[in-house]
Write a protein that binds this DNA or RNA. Sequence first.
RNA 1: GAGCCGUUAGCUCAGCUGGUAGAGCAACUGCCUUUUAAGCAGUGGGUCACAGGUUCGAAUCCUGUACGGCUCACCA
Length: 523
Amino acid sequence: MGTQRGGEQYDSFGEGCFQSQLGFIFCDSQWKRDSNAMEDKQFELRKSKLEELRAMGIDPYANGFTPEHTAGELVSLHASKSPEELEQVEDLFSLAGRIVSKRDFGKSAFFHLSDRTGQIQGFMQKNSIDEKTYTLFRKLLDVGDFAGVRGELFKTRTGELTVRVRELFFLTKALRPLPEKWHGLQDVETRYRQRYLDLIANQRTKEIFKTRSKVINLIRRFLDERDFLEVETPVLHPIAGGATAKPFITHHNALDMDLYLRIAPELYLKRLVVGGLERVYELGRTFRNEGVSTKHNPEFTMIEFYQAYATYEDLMNLIEELVCYVVENTVGDTLFEYEDKKIDFKRPWNRINIYEALREKFGSEITEDDQFLFARADSMGINHNGIKGKALTEIFEALFEDSLVNPTFVYGFPLDVSPLARKNDDDPEVVDRFELYIYGREIANAFSELNDPIDQKKRFTDQVEMKEKGEDEYHEMDNDYVSALEYGMPPTAGAGIGIDRLVMLLTNSSSIREVIFFPHLRP
RNA sequence: GAGCCGUUAGCUCAGCUGGUAGAGCAACUGCCUUUUAAGCAGUGGGUCACAGGUUCGAAUCCUGUACGGCUCACCA
């Protein structure tokens, strides 16, 4: 404080300020972390322990220790054994991991070691290991450090399977302390910005991402078994096509041209169907330059798949099967709770026609009399830009979306909001398209593909006209895609599923940021 | 983009209608050979997000900024 302002302290204080100001030039938010690094006592202490280790000839970042066992493996193989049975097991086991707790009794000590499979307790006794190692463990090994151990198994008085350490290897010194052991890491911002800390401190986070990985795996397995081919198409697009959304724009220097990060892989996948790859899918990142919310991240993961000789109705069945397959192999039960509601995935799922739902609510005027429709939309505050289909779907969403808790297929989409979908054979005003809603959220979008190149060209032209009407979300003309269709695309149906939102449901996560390792945040 | 709320020790949180900061965990020094949120005794640690303002006096009241959360809008 003020009274401590002796010459020496004042000098070091001044130096710290200078460093901070340097940091400030580059990044404001970095300032706090940098200045902490300079001043934090625990950090400095751990650094001095590191130097002490080096002085003793111990590499605090040593390589070369190869664990032959894992915590999970030892627990599942030996935890049920009695103490007597364990005494018969004379093998030495070797493990490596992070020290996550330490209980020191002076002449003996307990700790827990954590690896990818779980945790196991270790025990050290002064008289069963050389004194140097024992002192090292007590004085220089901190919670957070990585270590390798070798020893035999036994059971403590309380019955916990424990490794009696005969050899200890320093593997990595942690210079910063771990988050608190009991409450974990709560601060949402730190959890997202420093996800590694979240993963260390919060078991649930690890479980969420394991589930995410499993979901992706299951989807691949499901489609592979049905003879789909996984493919990769460009992320950099000369035309942002396949959906109506605002793209991220980037620039190719050598060609001096703007490119767009893909808003959907759709048009490239259908080119592959033209090429004879009758069943294809792509699972990957898609980018949309729009708002960030609990349900939106600028980059998100979706799967799109296309199946020749299938219709949108076939895809309803396929998606039911696929999603149920994923649910059964992750949650385990087709009925489970999400947030405040129970969701029942039992098949068959409900199917609702947009037009019928609206006619039931308002009478046939709503779908036949444009004046009535637009008046209704206006009264609900819907921005329709004179586009009938937009007014219809928005009215539907406003009124029904929230009630679609159990998986529901919504179909009968209007033509003018579906520039890539095939016209319905009975009603040219609507297309053979559906969306899957779960818990009031759109999870999937699918349709029988428009494979008539002349119709497709006209649809693109209509979209360009909508742009001129002032609609900021429209589909651009893609002549290259039209010419692909001119070579002939077999009748095909395709679907896109939002993986992040599906994982949210399966992990009971209320925000999309909980299911993306590094969600978008301001720098 | 708009509204509301938040930011206090490494972590989790208190801090009433203004009187220049507290706890638990972690850390440090001791003691302790079966603990597991180990225990006991002691110690250190804070530009209370940042910048202004009001005031004799601000973590507390006001304004602005940054970052975050929630809701809404656009969308998947």
